[in-house]
Design a protein around this nucleic acid. Structure first.
Length: 276
DNA sequence: CGGACGGCCTGGGAGC
DNA sequence: TGCTCCCAGGCCGTCC
């Protein structure tokens, strides 16, 4: 499931392979993945445009084209970009195909069809609601321990729900939230307002550490995720808690605990992450 | 404000 | 082998 490190890895592979290429043809197999406006307009508007560069904001991927056009993409659970030769067998659930000026294709596939894309005039991105609502980028210099403390202050919600809320921090999903809380030694159900300044400092560090490590490992391939060149990530080999339900803590050997927090499965170590 | 839940989807795994 | 059921979870909308 693509979170910040996975979307960043996809962005990097698209930047490497697709930036500078022109869209020679657009084929839309599944109109529903084009979220706003008629899909015919989407196809016509993109024809002949050139991909300039690719940007990431939280879990959103922004493809900037010439002529002040941008495609806002969200991969949700199973969305993928596939850069490949045109004779490559069409994967099941291929929804959009761009024929590129280098003779290759850029395909959008999405098994569960949660993901999608939308064409937005580049100058209107600043007022595009989904992006506007996003909180601080956790790997930017704007994300300081002080900012995290302010986010936690007076909040009665559970810490995991708070850091998963994209209006607070943009980019954490279930995997990296569980991993960061484990590293920080904080139970996912702790009320945010009870987190001390010292703990917030640890959490701030842990969030940056798990995300940076995720990017360095080119993402976590737990089920579906691959980058635009079909490469799996390696970060699944470094996980301490996510997906390890029923196993023992790598630090202390205690049996890992499992809970639903905000409707999401959460794995934690009851000894290393006390409820207090 | 915060929490709970349904909807959107398919495929993989468990259990029978 | 084949059936049913549950689960995976990002985000939105609704309701309490």
């Amino acid at each position: 499931m693509p979170e910040l490190p996975e979307v960043e890895t996809v962005r990097q592979s698209l930047q490497k392979k697709v930036a500078g290429l022109k869209i020679a043809a657009v084929k839309i197999v599944q109109p529903k993945v084009v979220k706003a406006g008629p899909f015919e307009d989407f196809a016509v508007a993109l024809l002949g445009r050139t991909f300039i560069d690719f940007e990431r904001r939280g879990k959103y991927l922004l493809a900037h084209l010439d002529g002040s056009a941008s495609i806002v993409v969200h991969l949700r659970m199973t969305g993928r970009w596939v850069y490949c030769k045109p004779d490559t067998q069409l994967a099941k659930h291929t929804h959009v195909i761009f024929q590129l000026s280098d003779g290759n294709e850029l395909r959008f596939t999405d098994t569960r069809r949660f993901g999608g894309m939308e064409l937005v005039a580049t100058q209107n991105l600043v007022e595009y609601n989904s992006l506007l609502k996003l909180g601080v980028e956790p790997l930017s210099e704007d994300f300081t321990p002080e900012i995290l403390c302010i986010l936690l202050q007076g909040k009665k919600s559970k810490i995991k729900s708070l850091i998963l809320d994209q209006t607070n921090l943009a980019g954490l999903g279930n995997i990296y939230a569980d991993e960061a809380l484990f590293l920080a030694g904080i139970h996912p159900e702790r009320k945010a307002e009870t987190i001390t300044a010292a703990e917030a400092l640890k959490l701030h560090h842990a969030i940056q550490e798990v995300l940076q490590k995720g990017i360095a490992n080119k993402g976590t391939t737990f089920r579906d995720y691959v980058d635009a060149e079909g490469q799996q990530g390696q970060n699944q080999l470094s996980l301490n808690v996510y997906g390890r339900g029923g196993q023992n803590c790598v630090k202390c050997g205690t049996a890992l605990g499992k809970a639903k927090v905000g409707g999401r499965t959460s794995i934690f170590c009851p000894a290393c992450q006390p409820t207090e």
